[in-house]
Structures are given as structure tokens and as C-alpha cells.
């Protein structure tokens, strides 16, 4: 295990990039997801159709292929990304579809009576959305969103395929230099597990804060 301890800085650097990628992709993905979910309720049929198509295509194709499309395929059309940029873009687009579905599920779970009450009080649509619908949706979906974030942290490991120096890649580079395969891979696995456990606990804590009084 000495090799691991001697190179903690390397692992830390990789982990930092992993978390940065996951955070960016999650924030971006949330925005995309929200817009997509709202688009599904738009009056214009082509807008709705576009949103549905986007979600279905992303959810039925592998993330690695999506990454290849962004990093290797788009340059054919003149759009070039760095490996890191491509990873974040691909993961953002990927996330957006899943977040859209999570939001859609949350919206459907709101009892119709809430909308009736808001309407009966004369609340305009926008106010009802902001004050009644979205806060309740958020409280319903935050566990699923937390899980989605953790999945994104794990998914960021595909960055190794295009050379992004996130956690998996730095570990593999170290392994190819030192040949301490078992120690490094075990450490890599345990680091991911520790991170996901900690993140899960943190998000549960935040979730309770949000749920206070409500449940």
C-alpha cells in the first residue's frame, strides 16, 4: 500500500477533477433537464416532440458512444472540444435527459388537488408554478436527483477513454508506471466507494433539511 500513500497527491488531483466534472455536468444537466421537462408541456407540438426525442435517444444509447460522438464525431462538422470539454458536454447532455425524466415523474406525483386549490385562489399560472408546483416537485425528487449525481460521479470514469485525467485515469497511469496493479486498483475502488458513501450521506442530510415540517 506504500505506493498509494506515496502518491496521495496524484489520487487527490484525479478525484478533484472527477468531482469538478460531475458537478459541472450535474448543474448543466439540471438546467437542460428543467428546460426539457417544461418543453414537454409546451403548447407547440414540435417543441414537445423534440424534447421527447432527445430524452429517448439519450436514454437508449450508451454514454461512451455519446462521448465518442462529441469528441470524435463532431470535429467532422467543425466542432472541436478538448477531452475535458467533450467529457463535460457529453455528461451534461446525458444528465439532462435523466433529470428531465426525474422532474417529469415528480410533476406527475403532485396531487391534482394542489393545482385546483391554486386555481381556485386565482393564482396566475406562473405564480402557481413557482410557489406550489416546483417546491413540491423538488421535495419529491431530491433523492432521485442525489442518486443521479452519484451516478454521474461514477460515469465520469469514461473520461479515461479519451485521456481526461480524472480519478480512474490517474490511477491507470500510476499503475502503468509502477506495476503495483492490485494495490492501486483496490485503492481506486475503495476511493470511489468512500466518495459515494460520503456524498450519499451528505445529500441525505441536505434532504432532511429540505423536508423539515413537510413530512
Amino acid at each position: 500500500m506504500a505506493v498509494v500513500l506515496d502518491n496521495l497527491g496524484v489520487f487527490a488531483g484525479g478525484l478533484a477533477l472527477t468531482l469538478l466534472v460531475a458537478l459541472s455536468a450535474s448543474l448543466g444537466g439540471s438546467v437542460v433537464g428543467l428546460l426539457t421537462a417544461l418543453s414537454r408541456m409546451a403548447p407547440a407540438a414540435p417543441v414537445r416532440w423534440l424534447a421527447v426525442t432527445y430524452v429517448e435517444v439519450i436514454r437508449n444509447t450508451p454514454g461512451l458512444v455519446q462521448l465518442f460522438l462529441v469528441y470524435l464525431g463532431l470535429p467532422n462538422l467543425g466542432i472541436r472540444f478538448s477531452p475535458l470539454g467533450a467529457l463535460i458536454v457529453a455528461l451534461t447532455v446525458n444528465n439532462g435527459a435523466y433529470v428531465a425524466e426525474i422532474i417529469r415523474g415528480g410533476l406527475q406525483a403532485i396531487p391534482k388537488g394542489q393545482l385546483d386549490a391554486a386555481a381556485a385562489l386565482g393564482l396566475p399560472r406562473r405564480v402557481a408554478l413557482a410557489e406550489v408546483v416546483l417546491p413540491q416537485t423538488l421535495r419529491a425528487i431530491h433523492p432521485a436527483l442525489a442518486n443521479q449525481f452519484i451516478q454521474t460521479v461514477l460515469a465520469s470514469s469514461i473520461g479515461t477513454v479519451v485521456g481526461v485525467e480524472e480519478l480512474t485515469q490517474v490511477a491507470l497511469i500510476l499503475e502503468s508506471r509502477t506495476y503495483q496493479t492490485v494495490e492501486i486498483l483496490v485503492a481506486l475502488t475503495l476511493i470511489y466507494v468512500a466518495v459515494t458513501v460520503l456524498l450519499a450521506a451528505l445529500m441525505r442530510r441536505l434532504g432532511h433539511r429540505l423536508d423539515r415540517g413537510y413530512r
Binding site: L154, V182, T189, Y192, V193, V197
Partner: peptide, 23 residues
């Protein structure tokens, strides 16, 4: 179960492939 679900599949594949030859 938590170990498997808490780490990326990609890493698990590498663990098995590289690990097996290493042992």
C-alpha cells in the same frame, strides 16, 4: 452490494481483467 454499486463498472472490469493477470 454497496461495494459494487459504489464504484464504476469500468473500474470493476479493469480490476477483474488486470487483477486476474496480476495474480
Amino acid at each position: 452490494v454497496d461495494l459494487v454499486r459504489g464504484s464504476p463498472l469500468l473500474v470493476q472490469l479493469l480490476v477483474i481483467y488486470l487483477g486476474a493477470s496480476a495474480v
